[in-house]
């Protein structure tokens, strides 16, 4: 069975300076497979600087990996040409985080929707184009007459973000990369956008990579989760298991900081060890070591993934009695 998208040991390293190159590892040795016939929703979670957006950029082909390769239907995406490239561009769509930054302020929002229609020749007439636009806008809960013909500054953040989702919907993609799609949207609309995304997966067979720092929405929409920290996988597995019983100290900190809308479930009492400096220490150490309350001497060497249950792994020496899992096989234990 062909894989829709496959990451093979992908790393992305940014370097700074010419003579004293100072490398920043944005993503380290990531392997991931998305199957064509099993549409799923995979969450990639982590705080700022964890490499979430780098991963999105790599998948979208906006940047090239430093090491490893990214395959789309078996073909390396850097070598796609002509019709194949066009198909890849159409079938892999994105929704970005900031609904304020993605619009060109000189055009009405129609522009954002008509460009893809024209580019991919989705409509034969203006009337058909218009009805496609209206259909997509209605699907995300907007009144077409409210938004069409308006300029971005006349719309609220929530409206703009839903226009972005509508734009992606318009193209009937195979894979949607949603980079923090609801972080700037009202809570009451969040539910609607997330439901739209889930229906997209269920009804149209679109796989979704949901990139977020918000574990509450991740828990509700996704089947599986990968927790990143400074470019490395900390914990991964079934979303229920990871959020209800986090094993890695970093995931525990994340879950502990979720502001649950529940008065009896307060923020944890543990003080947060702030990461204020950019100093990483040794690049071979566990990236979380400097903030980890359970850091040990052994953590100075990077821990491999240990398989805790059939569908949960953590990169932490606390679980070194468990069998190791090679990074390449990570996708096999993520439930579809």
């Amino acid at each position: 069975m062909a894989n829709l998208l496959e990451l093979r040991n992908v790393s992305k390293i940014y370097t700074r300076g010419l003579t004293h190159a100072h490398p920043t590892v944005a993503l380290r040795d990531m392997s991931l497979t998305l199957k064509d016939d099993e549409p799923t929703i995979l969450t990639v979670a982590g705080e700022s600087g964890s490499g979430k957006t780098t991963l999105a950029m790599l998948l979208l082909g906006f940047i090239d990996p430093t090491m490893g390769e990214i395959l789309y239907k078996g073909r390396n995406i850097t070598s796609l040409t002509g019709a194949e490239r066009l198909a890849y561009r159409r079938e892999v769509q994105a929704v970005f985080q900031d609904p304020f930054a993605v619009f060109n302020p000189f055009y009405t929002v129609d522009h954002l929707l008509t460009v893809p229609i024209r580019q991919f020749k989705l409509a034969r007439s203006k009337v058909q184009a218009r009805s496609l636009m209206e259909e997509a806008l209605t699907a995300v809960g907007l009144r077409p007459e409210d938004v069409l013909g308006r300029f971005p500054h006349q719309l609220s953040g929530g409206q703009r973000q839903r226009i972005n989702v509508a734009r992606a919907l318009l193209l009937r993609p195979r894979l949607l990369i949603a980079d923090e799609p609801v972080s700037m949207v009202d809570a009451s609309l969040r539910a609607n956008i997330l439901e739209t995304l889930r229906n997209l997966q269920r009804d149209y067979g679109v796989s979704i990579i949901y990139i977020t720092h918000d574990l509450t929405t991740a828990y509700h929409i996704a089947k599986s989760i990968i927790v990143l920290y400074r470019g490395s996988v900390m914990e991964a597995g079934d979303v229920d298991a990871v959020i209800k019983s986090p094993q890695h100290p970093y995931t525990q900190l994340l879950v502990d900081s979720i502001p649950w809308p529940n008065l009896d479930q307060r923020w944890g009492e543990h003080p947060i060890i702030a990461r204020e400096s950019g100093s990483t220490g040794s690049s071979d150490a566990c990236p979380f070591m400097s903030r980890c309350p359970k850091a040990m001497d052994i953590c100075k060497a990077r821990p491999p993934l240990y398989q805790i249950t059939a569908s949960q792994v953590a990169a932490c020496y606390l679980y070194d009695k468990q069998p190791e899992l090679v990074a390449e096989r990570l996708s096999e234990l993520l439930p579809a």
Binding site: A191, N192, E195, T217, H220, K244
Partner: peptide
């Protein structure tokens, strides 16, 4: 009421109750 019941928590996974 609608706002409160639209909130996600650990017990109602996958239930999206928008307004």
């Amino acid at each position: 009421r609608a706002l409160i019941s639209s909130l996600p928590n650990l017990d109602n996974k996958g239930v999206f109750r928008g307004i």
